[in-house]
Simulated scan of single mutants.
Amino acid sequence: MTRDELLDVFFGGSFQADHADDHCFTGRARVGDETVTVIGTAGRAEVGVDLCLRMAAAVLECVRERPGEAIVFFLDTQGQRLRRRDELLGLNGYMAHLAKCCEVARRRGHPLLSVVYGEAVSGGYLTTGMMADACYAVRDAEIKVMNLPAMARITKVPLERLEELAGRSPVFSPGADNYLAMGHLRAIWSDDYTARLAAALADLRTGRPADDTRMDDGLARGGRRMAAPIAAEVAGHD
């Protein structure tokens, strides 16, 4: 799904852009009976210092000027920007700044929702999607931290062993279905996008302060069996 297709199927003609370039777009749109702030990446964007600052600025503008307005992130990113300039400037700090701005928005009562509509990879996704209260994906989206050949090179674990593990556990496997099984995604959407987004935002507002159900969902779906029991055991010890 391209950015133009995304904006059409989710918002029709209601999206009003404040900024749009090849890799980032911000603005506002109508969803049901409310107006939401839209912040998105496009064109398999690399998340570098400039993109982090632009997205953080859009979050803070919403907090300052539109109290309580929902913020919806749309994601198509190939990961963090692997450039000398960005690394020398301290890209991790800029990513942390964006995440902190999202936490400020959350504490001020802004529901945060993210939707992967293209690709979501590694650190680019950690910063621009995983920090939301609820995460979703469209059917043809691709989510991954690292492909198995690259993981084999980094960890020195033979590729054959990783492929064996991937067949038994979604934790090692790319793909939106595996992230759904792990509980990270609440759902994968394939139709009625406008209605599904409106319902997801209504769920967030009804359930605030948002309960993080990802560990429980991962346990129930069989994709993340140990996190919830271990967390419960730790919480039971004073």
Rank of each mutant, 00 (worst) to 15 (best):
R81W: 08
A42M: 06
E103L: 12
G68Y: 06
E46H: 04
F74E: 04
A56T: 13
Q78T: 11
L82E: 14
C52T: 06
R107T: 05
H97Q: 12
G40C: 12
R108M: 11
T35W: 02
L98K: 02
G48Q: 09
S114I: 01
L91R: 06
L91K: 03
T35G: 00
F73Y: 13
C102Q: 10
V47D: 04
V59D: 07
M95R: 11
V36K: 02
E87Q: 08
A105S: 03
I71W: 07
L60Q: 13
E103H: 05
G90E: 04
I71Q: 14
A96Y: 08
A45D: 10
A45N: 07
E65C: 03
H110R: 01
R108W: 01
D86V: 01
R64M: 11
A58P: 00
G43M: 09
E34M: 08
A56Q: 15
D33M: 05
V38Y: 14
F74I: 11
L112V: 09
E69K: 10
F74Y: 15
D86K: 01
R106A: 14
A99Q: 15
R30W: 06
L75Y: 00
C52Q: 03
A57C: 08
C52V: 05
T37Q: 15
A42W: 02
V31G: 00
I71L: 14
P67A: 15
L91T: 01
D50L: 08
R84W: 09
V59E: 08
Y94C: 07
H97N: 13
Q80G: 06
C52I: 04
R44W: 13
A105M: 03
E103F: 02
R66I: 00
E46K: 10
E65L: 14
G90D: 03
R83N: 13
G90C: 04
L60V: 08
G43T: 12
C52G: 00
R44T: 09
T41I: 03
